[in-house]
């Protein structure tokens, strides 16, 4: 498969990068959501300790999952481009 990528290959590539981007968007929105919940609890004066405590665990977990996922996508997709 040397030379210029066919339309099929280009479409495949586009979908693959879309999946990787969606993963990034999804996890980032979850992290932002958790931050939003902390802010709401703070503003309403409702025991922010619960939110902060949970986010201290949850956010690193989500970020690690994102990191693993993206590193695989990046490693595979970039390796493929650089034939």
């Amino acid at each position: 498969m040397n030379g210029r990528p066919s339309p099929f290959d280009r479409a495949v590539r586009a979908c693959q990068w879309a999946i990787a981007s969606l993963t990034l968007v999804f996890i980032t929105s979850i992290v932002l959501w958790i931050a939003h919940l902390i802010r709401t609890a703070w503003r309403l004066g409702d025991v922010p300790s619960a939110s902060i405590g949970i986010s201290l665990v949850a956010i690193p977990v989500f970020l690690t999952l994102l990191g693993v996922g993206l590193s695989v996508f990046w490693g595979l997709l970039r390796g493929g481009d650089r034939r």
């Binding site: 495949v12 979908c15 693959q16 490693g75 595979l76 390796g79 493929g80 481009d81």
Partner: peptide, 18 residues
């Protein structure tokens, strides 16, 4: 399958990442 295979060709580098 082409999309979901993420360009897998079974090279050693790819195996290590996975």
């Amino acid at each position: 399958y082409a999309v979901l295979a993420m360009g897998w060709t079974g090279t050693e580098r790819q195996q290590k990442i996975l």
